[in-house]
């Protein structure tokens, strides 16, 4: 945990430097006081200071987080499942408007259920169909919510 907090602190510091540099390109002050860059710059400085604080207090914070016990052991298959689910979500989001709600969500439901360990087709098929076409029909036609049609329209 201590190492994780140190890495977080360094990432935070780099991020704060980047934000401060970007904020400097905006005006810090105008005739009537703070300009568009003033608050982001101030916050970047604060974030940087907190990151430095975190770096030096990493050990104490790690002790607080884990107590006296050992940190949880890593579960590789579960971590891979999380990674795959995030990838599936991202792909679905990227093609959401092109494919439309029904097709993208049909694909997402099938992929997500498989990633979560479901293998029974009689569970996957109805869940995916209800989650895509069923939800679309309910929300678009009954609740008046606007969802993308994409390649097919129902």
């Amino acid at each position: 945990m201590k190492l994780s907090y140190r890495v977080l602190a360094l990432v935070g510091l780099a991020f704060s430097i980047f934000i401060a540099a970007t904020a400097l390109d905006l005006r810090l002050m105008t005739r009537l006081g703070p300009g568009p860059g003033f608050f982001p710059f101030s916050l970047a400085v604060l974030f940087g200071l907190l990151s430095v604080g975190l770096y030096f207090k990493a050990g104490a914070i790690a002790k607080l987080a884990t107590g006296d016990g050992d940190p949880e052991p890593r579960d590789r298959p579960a971590e891979i499942a999380v990674l795959l689910l995030v990838t599936t979500l991202t792909v679905s989001a990227v093609f959401f408007e092109y494919l439309g709600f029904c097709l993208s969500m049909l694909g997402f439901c099938i992929a997500a259920l498989l990633i979560m360990g479901e293998r029974r087709w009689y569970v996957i098929a109805p869940t995916a169909l209800i989650g895509s076409f069923g939800v679309y029909f309910l929300f678009v036609h009954y609740l008046g919510v606007s969802l993308p049609e994409g390649l097919i329209s129902i």
């Binding site: 979500l89 679905s92 989001a93 959401f96 709600f101 969500m105 997402f108 439901c109 997500a112 259920l113 979560m116 360990g117 479901e118 569970v123 869940t127 989650g131 939800v135 929300f139 919510v145 606007s146 969802l147 993308p148």
Partner: peptide
Amino acid sequence: PQRILHVSILLLCIMGVYT
């Protein structure tokens, strides 16, 4: 089953955020 529940929640999240 938790899997169905989780997929349903994610689906609602996607739909909710998009709209």
